Simulated scan of single mutants.
Amino acid sequence: MVTYNTYAMGRVEKIWGGDWMEFRPERWLEKHELTGKVRFAPKDSYMYPVFQAGPRICLGKDMAILQMKKVVASVLRRFKVVPAVDVGSEPVLQMGLTMRMKDGFPVRIVER
């Protein structure tokens, strides 16, 4: 049997660099040389397989991304999302078919 671990693939230093642990959304952005506009530049689905890859790619991938953009835009326009965890604490990840954080990820919503 051949298997792979998406959690581990997101932490490969050879692919993501020495700062793989840092939250850097700009990894998925690229700037157009002439216009200077920034746009979303998705990674290869075999390199970052959160929605699987090849002929068995997730059928809901495009819908999930569209919904995520709508929710993020509407929430961040009015509110600031602040982690509500103790300083220095790390979330505990639970492995499974899909990965999740043990006991969720508590946040506070602060109106702008």
Rank of each mutant, 00 (worst) to 15 (best):
F23P: 00
F23M: 03
R24H: 12
P25Q: 02
W28V: 02
W28N: 04
L29E: 13
E30Y: 11
E30R: 14
H32L: 04
H32Y: 06
E33H: 13
L34P: 04
L34C: 12
G36P: 14
K37T: 06
F40A: 08
F40R: 11
A41S: 05
K43V: 04
K43E: 03
D44Y: 02
S45M: 09
Y46H: 05
Y48I: 03
P49R: 11
P49D: 12
V50A: 11
F51C: 04
F51E: 02
Q52S: 13
A53Q: 01
A53H: 06
G54N: 15
G54P: 15
G54H: 15
P55V: 13
P55E: 12
R56W: 06
I57Q: 15
C58L: 03
G60Q: 11
G60C: 12
D62L: 06
M63F: 15
M63C: 05
M63A: 08
A64W: 10
L66R: 04
Q67C: 13
Q67T: 11
M68G: 09
K70R: 07
K70S: 03
A73C: 02
A73T: 00
V75H: 08
V75T: 13
V75Y: 08
R77T: 03
R77Q: 11
F79P: 03
V81I: 12
V82K: 06
V85C: 14
D86N: 14
D86W: 10
S89H: 05
S89Y: 04
E90N: 09
E90D: 08
E90C: 09
V92H: 02
V92R: 04
L93A: 14
L93T: 14
L93G: 09
Q94R: 09
Q94T: 07
Q94H: 01
